[in-house]
Design a protein around this nucleic acid. Sequence first.
DNA 1: ATGTTTGTTCCGAT
DNA 2: CATCGGAACAAACA
Length: 275
Amino acid sequence: MPELPETQTIAAILNKNLAGKNVLQVQISKDYKALPSTEIFIKAVTGKKIKSVKRVAKNILLELNNGVRILFHLAMTGRLLLWNEKVGSEKWVKIILHLDNGTKLTFSDMRMFGKAAVLSPKQTEELAARYGPEPLDKNTTPQQLFEKIKSKRTNIKNALLDQVVISGLGNIYATDALFLAKINPLTKTSEIAPEDTSRLLDAIREVLEESIKFGGSTLSDKMYVDPFGKEGTYQEHFKIYSKKNCPVCDGKVNFMKISGRGTYFCPACQPIISA
DNA sequence: ATGTTTGTTCCGAT
DNA sequence: CATCGGAACAAACA
């Protein structure tokens, strides 16, 4: 579930609450495989101090004082919770980190699509290098995005979901950003002009920043909550995602699957660019 | 019972 | 050979 805003929200809260804490003990569920192996994971993490928590694309990285990183990727249904008296029982817990302030961080994952791994400093660099530009990085330019988009031969919606083109977008924010930029999701990347990319990057930044402001999106399944169990409210501010009628022209919103992902767009406000 | 789901990766097809 | 897109991964819900 989590895309960039949700991952960012989690990383910021964890950084605030975990920096400087020591990991006293690590518990891993028998039915779960941490990477590269559960044994190596436990050995690498136990007794280490957490220096900081950062986000890279949709990954959450806990930097330890020996330079090793714990990587969590939440995929569709992963959760990281900081347990206290308010955050109650949680199912599907796979990993528990016991901290020296008496609290614990749990990683749970209902559908097991997520990932927990330890990375060496070199592997951490390699990870970041695999991803496209970070949309919220001020140094990211429309020209960069344009070149990345032009390297793909598919529609713009698929291109935006490719983490090599741009980091951190998922189905919801790609859908909303295309609506704000007035670009039809089926537009071939070959038809995208530099000025479209400029509008698109602005739109991407707008939806991501707004969502971060609202603490991300929590859908009806309640899968996403922050580490203290709090839901996001960006779903009350969706631009087009999940809507029946266009908020701009009130026309009927089109729904279709693009590469298997539910896509919403307004055919009037997001017309196909003809060659 | 069938169809749906916010992500990523692998494999077959092109 | 590179790239695209469907299927698969697994579980809950309507």
